[in-house]
Each structure stands twice: as structure tokens, then as C-alpha cells.
Design a protein around this nucleic acid. Structure first.
Lengths: 187, 187
DNA sequence: CGCCGAGTTGAACTGAATCAAGAAACGTGG
DNA sequence: CCACGTTTCTTGATTCAGTTCAACTCGGCG
């Protein structure tokens, strides 16, 4: 719980009352490797905070799994599309390691937004932050070669190679596994 | 102004007081083709609503202009990274047609968020919407061929070809202009 | 011991980039 | 309203990065 509050405070400072309500609203959750947090076709009603562990989001395209994001310690994860619109998810979210999470329902979160302007602001600022992060990733991947994209990933998440199978990283970078293997072979 | 209020109401319903304050805060602006709304290196302090016209955001990579988004009627536009963080912009924003816009300063917008929880919520929901839109674009471009990406764009914005030079569309799709021209030749 | 998933390596193929001309369309001034 | 230069678009030839398919290696594990 400490790391959740800590992470929230890096986005926006909360009032004591808002913080207490949030503490009560998040429920702890420990899950094993390969568990699915969300499956395609189901409606996602929970937002998760990943305290410890590693997660991927992927979708199926022509029968192949395309990993389009990873979550690590201190990330908020969910299927944002489904969570926001309450339409069926188009992606799977799967644990890559046994993980410790905290969850809050959409309903509860919206109640807290209603009650504390404070929390609504934090959420707004969190979306801003995640929007900018996604935009940056988009810009930095277009018109870059395989080697450049891999080098950039290693810069941003040096630990990733030890924790995530190569095939998942390859599709995340928009490459085939064989190409990524060859890129790595050249150091 | 009518179309701005109309557009806001599709995101979230505002109180009369909040709506009135917003009406006062937005200033009208009419600019000619090729004007720059934002230039790389400058800090972006304004958010714009595009009532009429057409805009692109682009950045320079190896001396080449890469258009990474277009704005049309009823879009909110700014350099989100610079606007949110108040760091220098990494992109240019340029009018592709003479346009009618409304602008609000970051300072004023944050004041209004402070005053009306209502407006803070609308902004949070707007960010949600734009986040989802960006994510969808990302997913739909990765692992797609040139022809598929072009077909998808035409579905979503059939009018774009008559309003925007081919070269800009090509870089938006992650292609060279020559390739896009050949894709079009095959209908 | 043999299977299985994960990663590597090789050879052939291909979609798209690049380089290089040329053709159209456009706007501006005379 | 035409002439000229500029910008925009097309077409061709060549090259290359990355895919695909297939075989092989390696380490872990029942």
C-alpha cells in the first residue's frame, strides 16, 4: 500500500481525507504467473496498481499474439478502452510473473472522483502523463530501424530482457522474433 | 462558439455557471494558411479548439518532416507534451488551411478547473477519450501493410485526400511519398 | 532419457525505401 | 489570360531491411 500512495503522490498531492478514502478503496491481490487479469470480449471494471511483478497486454491479429505494452512495478494497468467505455475488451492482459496488485472498481473510483475534486484532478493528471508517454513511444518508433528501437527500449527498461520472453519483446517493437534475435547477436 | 460548446457537451454535460465561465475564457482567432500555432523549442501555453480548418503537427527527424497527427473541425489541438509539462515543444503545429480557432491559456484553464469540479471532470474525460483514440491508432498501424493503413485512413477520414498534400499523409502513415503514390495507383 | 519451449541461424523472398526523372497542378506577376 | 517557377505527384530501376520457413541448439524438467 505504501508504494501505491507514494506513486500517487508523484502525480498530485492529495488531501488527507482523499488519501484515507483511497486507502480503503483499493483491495490487495496476489496472483500467479500466467493468470489473466482481463480477457478479450469481457468488460473490464477494475483498475489495477502493480506493486510487484510484470504484466503484458496483447491482442490477436491474424492468429498471432501482438504484445502492445508491458507493465512493471508502480504502473497502473487496465484495458483503458474497456475500462473507460465499458465496452468489451479487445485485448488480453496476462501476468508474466507472480505479482502483487491492488485493485479498485470503476464504480468506486468514480464515486471517489465525485466526492473529492482532489482525486478527479489526480486522475486527470495521470491521464495526461500516460497520454504523453504513449505519444512519445509512438513518435520514437515510427521511421526507426529494428536496431534503433531495440536500443531505445534497453535504455528505458534495461531489466526487461531478463524478465520477458524474447518473442513478446519482438512484437512489442514491431519485429519478428528472428529479426530481434539477429539484432541482439550483433550486440 | 456554438460548435465549441456543442463539442464540449458531447464529452460531458456542464453546469450553466461552468459553461458561462468557459465561454468568457475562450478567445476567437482567425489565421491564414501556413501560419505556425507552435514552433519547436518554444513553450506552448495555449490550448486551441479548431472550429473550421485543418492543421498538422510534425517533427523533424534526420532533417525530414514527419507529420504525426492532423486536426480537423471540432478537434482540440495543442502540443500536449509542452502544454502539460511546460517544457519546450518538440514539434511544429502548422495550419494547412485558413482556419477559425478558439484559444484558452493553460493558466486560465487551470483556474477554471480549480473553480469548477465540473470542468476538471470534462478535462479528465477528454484526456481519456484522446488516450483511447491514440492507443487505437497505434494498434491499428503496427503490423499492417502500406495498403491496409491507407485504406483504414480513408475509412476514418475520407475527405483527407482533397485537403492535405500527399507527402504529409505518407509520413503520417509511416510511408515514403512514392510508396503511397503507388498504393493509390492500384486503387 | 526424451520431450518441450525458447532462442538462434541460414537461405530465399518481398514490401518498401531510395535515387532519379519527368509530368501535372497551382499561384503569382506581368 | 498567359508565362514561369514552384510545389506536388507519378513512374521506373535498384537496393535493402526485415519476413518467412525451416532446421538446429540449448537448458530445464517430468
Amino acid at each position: 500500500m505504501q508504494s501505491l500512495l507514494q506513486q500517487l503522490s508523484t502525480i498530485h498531492r492529495l488531501s488527507a481525507a482523499a488519501q484515507q478514502d483511497l486507502e480503503k478503496a483499493f483491495l490487495p491481490l496476489t496472483l500467479t504467473k500466467n493468470t489473466f487479469l482481463i480477457e478479450e470480449g469481457k468488460i473490464c471494471r477494475q483498475l489495477y496498481f502493480l506493486e510487484q511483478g510484470c504484466i503484458r497486454g496483447y491482442y490477436l491479429s491474424d492468429g498471432k499474439e501482438i504484445t502492445h505494452w508491458f507493465g512493471f512495478e508502480n504502473d497502473f494497468v487496465t484495458s483503458f478502452h474497456s475500462f473507460s467505455t465499458q465496452q468489451p475488451a479487445t485485448e488480453h492482459i496476462q501476468l508474466l510473473e507472480g505479482s502483487v496488485l491492488w485493485s479498485i472498481s470503476r464504480e468506486k473510483l468514480l464515486q471517489l472522483c465525485e466526492k473529492h475534486h482532489n482525486i478527479e484532478r489526480l486522475l486527470r493528471m495521470a491521464y495526461e502523463k500516460y497520454y504523453i508517454r504513449l505519444e512519445e513511444r509512438f513518435v520514437k518508433s515510427q521511421f526507426r530501424t529494428a536496431a534503433e528501437r531495440y536500443a531505445l527500449l534497453l535504455e528505458q527498461a534495461p531489466h526487461i530482457i531478463e524478465r520477458v520472453p524474447l518473442g513478446h519483446i519482438a512484437s512489442y517493437l514491431g519485429l519478428s522474433q528472428e529479426t530481434l534475435s539477429r539484432v541482439r547477436a550483433k550486440l
